[in-house]
Design a protein around this nucleic acid. Sequence first.
DNA 1: TTGTCAACTGTCAGAGGCTGACACTAATCT
DNA 2: AGATTAGTGTCAGCCTCTGACAGTTGACAA
Lengths: 221, 221
Amino acid sequence: MTDGQRAAHPTGLRERKKRRTRDALLHAAFDLFTTQGYEKTTVDEIVDAVEVSQRTFFRYFASKEEAAFAIQEAMESYFLAQLRRRPADEAPFDAMRNAVLCAWNSIGEVIEEIATVELHLRMYRMIESTPSLLAAHLRRCSDLENQIALLIAGREGLDVDEDPRPRVAVAAFSGVMRVTGQLWGRGRDGDVDSLRVLTEAYLDQLGPALAGNWRTGTGPV
Amino acid sequence: MTDGQRAAHPTGLRERKKRRTRDALLHAAFDLFTTQGYEKTTVDEIVDAVEVSQRTFFRYFASKEEAAFAIQEAMESYFLAQLRRRPADEAPFDAMRNAVLCAWNSIGEVIEEIATVELHLRMYRMIESTPSLLAAHLRRCSDLENQIALLIAGREGLDVDEDPRPRVAVAAFSGVMRVTGQLWGRGRDGDVDSLRVLTEAYLDQLGPALAGNWRTGTGPV
DNA sequence: TTGTCAACTGTCAGAGGCTGACACTAATCT
DNA sequence: AGATTAGTGTCAGCCTCTGACAGTTGACAA
């Protein structure tokens, strides 16, 4: 597989150099962000560590923010790929559910291409606890939601502007995803398996949570 | 009622002056934002229109952003007030549902205290279409979600960290709220009633949307 | 090999958001 | 009326981000 990945960036010296600076910038940024915090890290510090000009940084990343979301970016597109792969006869909600669970099974390898799982956890906590990054994160999730809704509507042959169900189902689904993400970030289990377990458990709570009376029947957790 | 509101800001000359500058800044900001757009409006333009220093603007508002959310702010706290007022025997989801519907019934008057419904619609559209504002908006929604979850958990005597259902239910609920908000912003019906109708219809779709197979039974819309 | 082209980078200058320090004015309290 | 305190203006500066222009270096063909 390592070979397969290398084959994905095979080209000449120029491209390799480019990739190297990008990686260097990313790692310097991750390092500084997680040690001193996002706000307290200036772009100047990052470029000093890599010894390039500030202008170069902004040619690789549209903003300081963008650099902070490299890992998330990879995870999101991996999930989307899994969702596109679901068999057409699965019901919408099941397709979404199975896509995350599949994605979370092998997400570790996706992360390792850029950083480490442990670093990702630290970055994730930083995003959740830095107001401006949290805001950006939520906007990214919202974009993702939109793509999912279009995809689901496509599977069912529906128009998202005509039928409310795609958007409504996706909204409920990704609401739960966010909650599990938060919980994972706050917990002490940093491994990827615990994220999968959490996701499964919480998705199964959607039905009961919307049911009328919580004081009877279905017990908690 | 107008008297009741005046009684809410009764104090001396100093406070009245303060309120006047704040209102003036807000109105100048709304005006410029909706005519030329948020990004293209500089803080200097706003303060020039009111004839105060830039420093003064930043004493009233922590950021240019904050000024853009004054109306949203009022609406959100009004909804929370309605939710707190719901009878204790209502089921969680019903309480949320009824709280919004009640709030949307009289939200017009809340808005009129600051601006007009029409201006609010223009501001809302601007927020949704300006990436940085959309991000901020979503973060605010996320804060609100958190408050709702605590409130609901309190009603049911639960701990949000122990039982997943409060957060899950709130996540699903506010996911739907966002979808309706977006739809209202895109539609041509600018009145507040249409928002109420939309909300009711979409909340009723939550159950069907999560049900297994969309190709049978429940027809669209 | 060499020359041309295109891509990548650095430098410089500047706009715009935002903050701290300090002095000044005007409302409030005694 | 005088002391106190809140609100404001000015100034100086940091940081993110952008445009313009020039220098450098890999790619590619003659």
